[in-house]
Design a protein around this nucleic acid. Structure first.
Length: 267
DNA sequence: AGCTCACCCTGGACGC
DNA sequence: TGCGTCCAGGGTGAGC
C-alpha cells in the first residue's frame, strides 16, 4: 500500500536512472495505461530528465517535454532488473534503458496505472497540498475542517485536501495527535489541529527515514523492503496493548476503511 | 455541496 | 489437501 513515504522512497532510489535513455517500452497490458496523450514510441531515444513525486504519484520527466506518471495503487511496484531476467508475474510494463537495465512496473491487483502525458497540468489540478511542504500548516488546514461533519480520518484520506496520506499513516498520525479517527472534522479545536499537523509531518518524515512500510508488497526501486512496520503504534495492532497506556487497540471500520486507535489515549 | 458506498482486482488467510 | 469465502484498500463516480 504505497503512500507518500513509500513513493518517496522509490523516487529516491530511481534518481539513479536520471540521465539514462529509454531504448524500448513493452506494454504487456494496454488497459493498464490510463492515458494515451502520447504514443509510447515517442519516448524512445529520449533521456530521463527527472524523477519526482506528487502525492502518491511518481512523475517521470523526459527531455524536450514528454511526461509519464505512475500510480502504484495497492500492490504496485517499480523496480530495476538486470537485462535478460525472466519476466515475473503481473509485470505490465517493461522499460529498457540504455545501460541494459530494465525498469519493471508490476501490479498484481491492478489498482495502479501509467499515464503518458503531454503535460502534468490537468492531472494534478485538483490535488491537495503536499503535507511536508511549508504550505501545509494549521492555517491551511483549519478552514478546510470548518463545519465539516465527515470523520477527520476520512478527510485526511481525501487527496483533494492533502495529498499522499493513506490508511496506515492516517491512523498513525491520529494516534500521535491523540485524536479519534471518527471525530467530526469540524469539532477539532485549534490546539488539536496544531497537534494533528505536527503529527502528520512527523509520521511521514519517520516513514521516509525508515524507507517505507513493508507489510507485504512494498519494495523500493532496488527491491529492498522498508522498516517502518516495526514502528507502527496502532495500524494492524488490534487487541495489542497501546504503547503508552497498555489498553488494547481497537479496530473499527470508518467509511469502509479499517481504522485502529487507542480508546484511552485518543479523544 | 457534502457525504456514503460500490466497484475495480488478486493473493493470502481462514474455516470446514 | 482443497475448496469456498472474505478481506485488504486508492481513487472514482453514482446516487442520496
Amino acid at each position: 500500500m504505497p503512500e507518500l513515504p513509500e513513493v518517496e522512497t522509490i523516487k529516491e532510489t530511481l534518481q539513479d536512472i536520471v540521465g539514462l535513455t529509454l531504448d524500448d517500452i513493452k506494454i504487456l497490458k494496454p488497459e493498464y495505461v490510463r492515458s494515451w496523450q502520447n504514443q509510447p514510441d515517442v519516448y524512445l531515444g529520449r533521456r530521463i530528465a527527472a524523477v519526482s513525486r506528487r502525492g502518491k504519484y511518481l512523475l517521470f520527466d523526459f527531455e524536450r517535454g514528454l511526461y509519464m506518471v505512475a500510480h502504484l495503487g495497492m500492490s504496485g511496484r517499480i523496480y530495476l532488473e538486470p537485462r535478460e531476467t525472466a519476466l515475473e508475474k503481473h509485470v505490465h510494463i517493461v522499460f529498457s534503458l540504455n545501460t541494459g537495465q530494465q525498469l519493471w512496473f508490476q501490479d498484481a491487483r491492478r489498482f495502479g496505472g501509467l499515464w503518458l502525458l503531454k503535460d502534468y497540468g490537468e492531472m494534478f489540478a485538483t490535488m491537495g497540498v503536499e503535507p511536508l511542504s511549508r504550505r501545509f500548516s494549521t492555517s491551511y488546514l483549519a478552514p478546510l475542517l470548518e463545519n465539516r461533519r465527515v470523520a477527520i480520518k476520512t478527510l485526511l484520506l481525501n487527496q483533494r485536501m492533502i495529498s499522499g496520506i493513506g490508511n496506515i499513516y492516517a491512523d498513525e498520525a491520529l494516534y500521535r495527535a491523540g485524536l479519534r479517527p471518527e471525530r467530526p472534522a469540524g469539532s477539532l479545536q485549534p490546539a488539536e489541529i496544531r497537534r494533528l499537523v505536527r503529527a502528520i509531518k512527523q509520521v511521514l518524515r519517520s516513514g521516509i527515514e525508515q524507507r517505507g512500510t513493508t507489510l507485504r508488497d512494498f519494495q523500493d526501486g532496488y527491491k529492498q523492503k522498508g522498516e517502518f512496520q516495526d514502528y507502527l503504534k496502532v495500524y494492524g495492532r488490534e487487541n495489542e496493548p497501546c504503547p503508552a497506556c497498555r489498553q488494547p487497540i481497537v479496530r473499527q471500520v470508518i467509511n469502509g476503511r479499517s481504522s485502529h486507535f487507542c480508546p484511552i489515549c485518543q479523544k
